[in-house]
Simulated assay, not measured.
Amino acid sequence: MIGYPEDFSGNPTPSYRSNAPLRILYKVTEWTGHSSEQLKMMHEHLEHLKQHGIAAGDD
């Protein structure tokens, strides 16, 4: 992708697309992710929303 350094390659979501160049201010080198229990709860909540016809990210 033009405008993205190799460290940030991929397919960003439309909400992160920009016509103007983006400037990377810093790179996160240390990050602690969510626990397995937290991830499980988030996935269950997304499934609950899906079952009720609510798409994730709806405003």
Rank of each mutant, 00 (worst) to 15 (best):
H48P: 00
Q51F: 06
Y26M: 03
H45F: 12
I24Q: 08
Q51D: 13
K50N: 06
K27M: 07
R23Q: 11
L25V: 15
P12Y: 01
M1E: 13
Q51E: 15
L39K: 15
V28Q: 00
S18A: 08
E44A: 08
K50M: 02
E47W: 03
Q38G: 04
H52R: 09
L22P: 02
L39R: 14
N19S: 15
W31Q: 11
I2T: 14
T13E: 12
Y4D: 13
P21Y: 07
Y4I: 10
R23M: 07
W31P: 00
K50V: 02
L46W: 01
T13M: 11
N19Q: 13
P5W: 04
E37H: 04
R23I: 09
S36E: 14
R23L: 09
L25G: 09
H43V: 09
Y16K: 15
H48M: 05
K40R: 13
P12W: 08
K40Q: 09
S9L: 03
K27H: 08
P5G: 07
I24P: 05
S35N: 01
N19A: 14
I24T: 06
K27V: 12
L25F: 12
S36W: 02
N11G: 10
Y16W: 13
L39C: 10
E44H: 02
I54N: 04
S35D: 01
D7G: 06
G33H: 03
P14R: 09
L49P: 01
G33T: 00
P12F: 04
G33W: 00
S18N: 11
S9C: 05
E47P: 04
L46D: 07
G3V: 05
Y4F: 15
V28Y: 04
A55E: 05
W31L: 10
G53W: 04
H43Q: 12
K50H: 07
S18I: 03
G3M: 05
E30V: 10
L22V: 11
S15V: 12
N11K: 14
T32I: 09
G10T: 03
W31V: 07
I24L: 13
R17Y: 08
V28T: 05
H43E: 14
T29M: 06
